[in-house]
Each structure stands twice: as C-alpha cells, then as structure tokens.
Design a protein around this nucleic acid. Structure first.
Lengths: 120, 120
DNA sequence: TCATTAGTTCAGGAATGATGAACTAATAGA
DNA sequence: TCTATTAGTTCATCATTCCTGAACTAATGA
C-alpha cells in the first residue's frame, strides 16, 4: 500500500478545497471532523446524511480530503484517524474554512437537501 | 431558446457555490465580475488565465455560475450582461463569497498554478 | 498461524465535462 | 424588408472523472 499523500500548506489550492467540499458527503464528514476536535476513524462515517456509504467510496472521499490538504490521516494500529488541518490552512487563506463550515451549518439549519446543484 | 434559470436565494446551496467556484476558469471569471462592479458580457472573457476559451465552453461556464445562483444574466440587445448576486447570497451565507474571493486573490498573489487539485 | 477488523486499490460502468458544428435571437445597414 | 453580423445557446460526441463491488494489504488478537 502506498503511503498517504499530504500536500504542504503552500501547495494547497483554493480550487482543491472548494472541489473537495462541493460534495455533500465530504462537507458533512469534514464539518464533523472540525466540530468534534478529537480525531475520528473512517468507519465512523459509514452512515452520513442518513445514507449508507460503501467503504470503497468512503476511502476515496478521505483521499480527496487528504490530498486537498483539508485533513491529515494517521494510521493508529488498524484504524486510520483524521484530524483537520484548519489551523494551517487558515494562515494561508484566512476565514475560508470557517466561512464554508458556517455556511454549511446555515444550510443544514434551513433543512436544505443534499444535492450539489440547485433544483432546476 | 429556453429562458435563463436563476434560482431564488433560498434554493442556493453551499455545494452548488463551491462546485461552481472549484473550476479555475469560473473563479477567475467570477472574481472579475465581482471586482468590476459594472456588468460584463460573456465574450469579454474569451481569454481567461492566458488561455483561449471556446465560446460553447464559456457559455456552459456561465450557465453553471447562473444556476448556482452566483450570477444573474440579463440580455441586453445582442449581448448578455452578468451581475454578481453577492449581496443576496451574503445575507444567507455571510462572509462565504468574500472569503473565497479573498483566498483566490491570495493564491494568485502567491503565483500558484491553475489546476483544481494539488500536485501529486 | 488463522481470523478479524480497517482501510486501499483496481476495474467497470455511470455520470459529468469540454467542444465543434449547427442553431437562435437581436440589431444594423442596404 | 432582406441580409449580414454579432453574441450566445444547444446538441452530439468524445474524454475525463466518479462510484462501487471485489479482491487486496496491513495490523492486531486469539
């Protein structure tokens, strides 16, 4: 198995972050990781937004989050634990993550659906 | 030709906005529309980021910006003019657009490339 | 050593995205 | 009123990306 990839903060791109968080499942996961500041393993997200997520899919989602620089994954025995890299990113792009997470909360509170695009 | 679609602010989703702005060409266009607060027609963007964009592609990009709620398009004679909907969106998701546009500026200043994902 | 648990990788089919060619819509000039 | 021009859209096709089951790896415990 190849080692996990974590870009340095300077290689993090806005586009990468926005793309990573433009998926309803991934924002939900990320928001959760940010909220609970203790690390989380992957399987704790096997149900997100009242939907079962296959573990291969979950694995890809985490890969996107890691490689966009949003999250750091660390193997702890059998499990993988994930920590947000908010602090680092916030230095480079002040307020970005905060605004996105907050907007996501607003949307959840409004009871909006989980599709990426608006209703046609 | 079918009429342009503009979602009401309440139908705008965070995911939709992030998706729309996760494309280097679209953020560049949007940042420009926001910066110059006068309306802009589409063809003024036929060259973005030192690259020629085919007009069908450009048309699709504007469609994405419109349907995500970021921009309002209005036909003025032969041309189409585009205005940002920042004010509206800012009421629902305070600070979101501002943080994204600002982050984009930081990245431009750092001379980062225009790919969506980080370098592997 | 074998079983279990957690996650990754791969391969395919499904869904999205890009773009040339053909189209529509508005206007200006003859 | 035609015809030409300019601006943008739509469609069809191909390319890329995304999702997911199946097979795999890696760490641990019995």
């Amino acid at each position: 198995m190849r080692p996990l990839i974590h870009p340095s903060v300077t290689d993090v791109t806005v586009e990468g972050i926005l793309h990573a968080l433009s998926d309803p499942v991934r924002v939900a996961i990320f928001a959760d990781i940010v909220a609970q500041d203790c690390t989380q393993n992957c399987s704790s997200f096997s149900h997100v937004l009242n939907e079962a997520i296959p573990k291969s899919t979950l694995s890809q989602h985490f890969k996107v989050l890691r490689e966009s620089g949003l999250v750091r994954g660390e193997r702890r025995g059998v499990e993988m634990h994930n920590v947000s890299r908010c602090a680092e990113i916030d230095q480079r792009f002040p307020g970005l993550i905060g605004a996105i997470v907050k907007a996501h909360e607003v949307q959840l509170a409004d009871g909006k659906r989980k599709t990426r695009r608006p209703v046609r």
